[in-house]
Simulated assay, not measured.
Amino acid sequence: MGAGNLRFAAALLVLVVTAASSGATVCVAQLRRDYYAGVCPNVESIVRDAVAKKVRQTFITVGATVHLFFHDCFVEGCDASVMVASKGNSTAEKDHPNNLSLAGDGFDTVIKAKAAVDAVRQCRNKVSCADILTMATRDAIALAGGPSYAVELGRLDGLSSTASSVNGKLPAPFFNLDQLTKIFATNGLSQADMIVLSAAHTGGLAHCGTFSGRIRGPTAPDPTMNRSYAARLQAECPANVDPRVAVSMDAVTPVAFDNQFFKNLQSGMGLLASDQVLYSDPRSRPTVDAWARRAAAFNRAFVAAITKLGRVGVKTRAQGNIRRNCALLN
């Protein structure tokens, strides 16, 4: 082995050891921006066009796609296992109670983008659903006015999807700061990463049941909640919780991806208890204040954090494949 190859092997070993020591299941060695250059060079524009078309049809697409990406990466890593449909007596991830809030438009975005990619003969069955979801998430964010960034590609699709794998993997809407920090840390993400990624709640909808305890009950409204905002939510959400009713997670700029999320927290207008705690807890409040003031700094931090998230649980070689249908295991 030549000196150049020895240096490369040593660098690769350091990369793998560093990833393993982070506490997360991460394999980033195969990820690179030009991964499909030789097999499907126009894949990013194909996906972007499909996402743009879907967003024009319904703007719910933005929040739905971003939330789908988060739920996927947090369970078995970024492997599109959340896309798989239940079959027979086998209940898949998507049908776990903690995933039932995911809007169908996110799934539809990936399915349509996959169809557009496979419609190109050169690209057919060459691009993973996991990478399509990653690209679609980036494109949805940019289309909503958020930062545009380059994505790393090279993920394979997972070989299994079970509802039981979801247990304990996703943050709950009532989590406090310590619980949020701990569950993000299991994926190699810092507390600062957790806070900035929480801004994904600047888009999308939440069902009334996820915050009903904050607006009704013996101690309601939640003392950390803006009184006028609580009254508005009480008017929008029935006293007997209707699982079909959902409200915008960002009451000020519901169709824009921006740093308004942090400004809302400063005003007591975080919809979920797990969002508002980022401001009510003095340990995280300075970070919220900083990103509420500086949109450019927020954008940079968000791109860095979502890039780290996209490296979690990447499947390689025998660990995965490229699904012909994102909803079905090969």
Results as ranks from 00 to 15, higher is better:
A115G: 05
G188W: 01
Q234P: 07
M1W: 13
L205I: 12
D193M: 01
S164R: 12
L180P: 06
F257W: 10
Y36W: 07
K87I: 10
T181F: 09
L156F: 12
T181Q: 11
D49V: 13
E152V: 05
F174Q: 09
G268F: 07
T186I: 08
V14G: 06
N89I: 14
V26T: 15
Q319L: 11
A273R: 12
A136P: 00
V151K: 06
A292E: 07
A292I: 07
R311D: 10
V84D: 01
N42Y: 08
V62R: 05
F107Q: 02
C78V: 08
Q30S: 14
F211Q: 03
Q191M: 14
I215N: 04
L156T: 04
Q30R: 13
P243T: 03
A3P: 10
A273H: 11
Q234K: 14
L15T: 14
N125Q: 10
C27F: 15
F184W: 13
F107V: 02
G145I: 00
I141G: 00
D131S: 01
A199P: 00
A220W: 05
L309R: 08
D34R: 09
D118K: 04
S198N: 11
R7Y: 11
A304I: 02
C129Y: 01
A206I: 07
D139K: 00
P173Y: 03
R283E: 08
S86H: 03
V84N: 03
S160E: 14
I322T: 11
D105P: 05
T186C: 02
L309A: 09
P147H: 01
S86K: 03
C27A: 14
A10P: 00
A230G: 08
S212W: 06
T134R: 10
G106D: 04
D178N: 13
P243H: 03
D105C: 07
P221G: 06
G217R: 04
T109I: 01
S21I: 09
A231Y: 11
A199R: 04
R232H: 10
K87Q: 14
G104Q: 05
C237E: 05
N167A: 14
A220G: 04
A295G: 08
A29M: 11
V166A: 01
R324M: 09
I183Y: 04
A200D: 12
P147K: 00
Q122G: 04
A20N: 06
A172M: 11
K263H: 12
D222M: 05
G213Y: 06
I132G: 01
H207Q: 13
A3D: 14
V14P: 00
S128A: 09
A103N: 13
R48Q: 13
A116C: 02
F302H: 02
L159S: 07
T287E: 14
S128F: 00
G154W: 03
R138E: 07
T65R: 06
Y229F: 15
Q191V: 12
G217F: 04
P173C: 05
G188T: 02
Q179N: 08
L12M: 13
V151T: 15
V252W: 10
